[in-house]
Simulated scan of single mutants.
Amino acid sequence: MNVSDSLTLPRPTAPPPRAQGEVLLSVQAVDGPTRLAHLRQQGSLKALFPRPSGPVLDVVTLITAGGLTSGDRMRLEARAGTGARLRLTTQAAERAYRAAGDPPALVESRLVADEGARIDWLPQETILYDGARLNRRLLVDLAPSATALLVEPLIFGRLARGEQVREGSFRDRWEVRRAGRLVFADALHLQGDMGRALDRAAVGGGARAMASVLLVGPGAASHLASVRALLPGSGGASLIEDGVLFLRLLAPDGFVLRRMLVPLITRLTGAALPKVWTL
């Protein structure tokens, strides 16, 4: 073998890099306002803290990798101590890109609220691109007197750019416990031609955007009539049991979905949306 022959030998190919990130945080009420008690973050998931302007502590998460693709792993765990108020959102819409291989991107979030605490989970939209593979799981543990508002908007492709989601996989599972008892569970699984599935009347009726909204806590039932008055014909609200209010909305695109969500979130929180929603 001469030198020129050795240059033609195939070289082993390294697997593409995978993004991994983790944020663990806890907050506590200190003489009224909520303050950060503990923070640990590593990898591609970061937590940002806008300047506090009231009793609620805002946390904005950011995936520095720029989006999610095959094999990425993100994990967030947040705890609100007794009487604390925590509001979590994202810096921008999250994007799940075409997966290069079979392993899906995995995102797991766990929220814990102690007695009298409140957590508002208000991420901006997740956009699924054609070929995306994403598995998500949201676990919530609440004390009997705690409150949680959970909002997850989802967009299937950017219609304004002519994008269609014709292949991919999306799994989303929620589990919410109150005083250790499972009070709400929801699982969504779309596989293959998601656009075709959404065209079915029993699934999406042609919608390309949807959102799930859940309010768990004392007084949740008192919002039922007011949120139903705000809902369009493509949305519905049900009182699962006392203290558990669930809404699901369908929309033709992300713009219409956000126009539906903003008044609902404002009604359920009694406050304006986080500033990053309007930037």
Rank of each mutant, 00 (worst) to 15 (best):
M1H: 12
M1P: 15
V3H: 13
L9T: 10
L9A: 15
P10A: 07
P10I: 09
P10S: 07
R11C: 12
A14L: 14
P15Y: 11
A19S: 14
L24R: 15
L24S: 11
L24H: 14
S26R: 13
Q28H: 15
P33C: 04
T34C: 08
H38G: 15
Q42W: 08
S44Y: 13
K46S: 03
L48P: 13
R51D: 10
P52W: 05
S53K: 12
P55K: 14
D58T: 11
V60P: 04
T61L: 15
L62S: 13
I63C: 15
T64W: 09
G67N: 01
L68H: 07
L68Q: 08
D72K: 02
D72F: 01
T82F: 06
G83S: 04
A84K: 09
T90V: 06
A96F: 03
R98Y: 07
R98P: 09
A100K: 11
A100P: 02
A105C: 01
R110E: 13
V112L: 05
D114L: 13
D114R: 12
E115D: 14
G116F: 06
R118S: 14
R118P: 00
P123H: 05
Q124G: 07
Q124I: 04
E125D: 01
L128R: 06
Y129P: 06
D130I: 07
A132T: 02
L134M: 11
N135S: 15
L139Y: 11
V140I: 15
L142G: 01
A143T: 00
P144N: 10
V151G: 02
V151A: 05
E152H: 00
E152G: 04
E152M: 06
L154G: 07
R161Y: 13
V165D: 04
S169P: 02
E175S: 11
R177H: 09
R178G: 00
R178I: 05
V183P: 04
A185P: 13
D186R: 00
A187N: 09
A187W: 05
A187G: 07
D193P: 12
D193C: 03
L198N: 00
L198W: 01
A202S: 14
V203A: 05
R208A: 08
A211D: 00
V216G: 00
G217Q: 05
A225D: 14
R228F: 10
S234C: 10
G235S: 08
G236P: 10
L239T: 01
I240A: 09
L245R: 04
L247C: 10
L247Y: 02
L249H: 05
A251Q: 01
P252I: 13
G254Q: 06
M260P: 06
V262D: 14
P263T: 08
L268R: 08
W277C: 02
T278I: 14
